[in-house]
Amino acid sequence: MKRYLLLALSFTLMVVSLYFVFVWVPTERMMGIVQRIFYLMVPTGWLTLLSFLIVFIGSILYLVKREEKWDILAYCSGEIGLVFTTLALITGSIWAKPIWGVWWDWGTPRLTSTLVLWFIYLAYFLVRSFASEPSRGARFAAVVGIVGFVDIPIVILSTTLWQGMHPPPLIFQEAGLDPRMMLTLQVSLIAYTVLFVILLIARVLLKNSEVDIRYLKEG
């Protein structure tokens, strides 16, 4: 029942967000229509970090408590995180094309550090498949999850400094944002976060069933 409520909430938020993005919010003067992808790019970027935070917490709890549920949480969050990271990369380059004239702009610290993060996510899953048994793979993945998360701030810092820039300001401090744009961004952020939570719950439940089936099969 609760899940359906959440689903309804997510649906409503998403519709509102889409309405805001495509109809209500004014078009940005300099960048034009393409600027609207900003309202998808920022939430995906945020979810990239949120999902990795959950991977990090799940990994620590798994190593300390050795309960499979924590590994499942980390795994599922990582999986959804990988999808959103990929989306963030795609929206990022769609944004880059008309604005900078290239699909990939190495000079954008956010884009480059997202790419590094994507590789860390990939390592997180690859190390599982290379392990000789699932429990060992879970343990190794947890180690990668922890090391990878700790690495993120340093990656962001160094890619920023590489460009000769100062560390980027937080999203909400971005100056001169029209209040309507601000509201649209906030609604989008909430809508996508709720979507993420729903996906995570669904994935964890599914993964639990997968594990149960595996146990039944192996006896």
Partner: peptide, 12 residues
């Protein structure tokens, strides 16, 4: 595969 993504910041 594990090593390079993590050490990218210090390589930079």
């Amino acid at each position: 595969i594990l090593f390079f993504p993590i050490v990218i910041p210090i390589i930079i």
